[in-house]
């Protein structure tokens, strides 16, 4: 799959880190970045980095074949409730389907999500993996 290189470059902070919008008025947190709080409408907001940890709430498995992305299949796609309280969608890795269940503690990990093989860019971004015991 060919991505727009400038578009990826402009958005890379959002691929590399989970950025949240925190409202200084109502105190609520939202994913992704907003200039106004989506809850109270205040413009008194700040962008904060998520700690990257949360729990699995829902999940499904995808066999959707994308050109040149076959080697990444199948994928487990989950809704993760972050410790900050917001829900995000992401791919689950390092876990078998039989092990996935609601409440599994996960953390964001940097992984390849695509690459323009054999000569193009490699695209990195965050996925979720079970928290390594002891962490």
């Amino acid at each position: 799959m060919k991505y727009s290189i400038p578009k990826f470059w402009r958005r890379k902070e959002g691929y590399y880190q989970i950025i949240l919008t925190k409202c200084r008025e109502c105190g609520k947190v939202a994913f992704f970045t907003y200039v106004r709080c989506p809850y109270c409408g205040s413009s008194n907001v700040e962008l904060v980095k998520s700690c990257g940890r949360g729990v699995v709430e829902e999940f499904t498995i995808s066999y959707n074949r994308v050109e040149e992305g076959e080697e990444y299949l199948p994928k487990i796609i989950a809704i993760v409730r972050l410790n900050e309280g917001v829900r995000v969608v992401g791919e689950l890795v390092d876990i078998d389907l039989s092990e996935v269940k609601e409440g599994v503690e996960v953390e964001a990990v940097l992984r390849r999500f695509s690459s323009d093989d054999p000569h193009g860019l490699i695209y990195y971004g965050l996925k979720f993996a079970p928290v390594i015991k002891g962490a």
């Binding site: 890795v93 390092d94 990990v109 992984r111 390849r112 999500f113 990195y124 996925k127």
Partner: peptide
């Protein structure tokens, strides 16, 4: 390493810790 892991992703995790 998994198909989505490489020197960058593994180095990233070790450095994060």
């Amino acid at each position: 390493a998994s198909v989505d892991e490489d020197t960058v992703t593994m180095g990233w995790y070790a450095a994060k810790v």
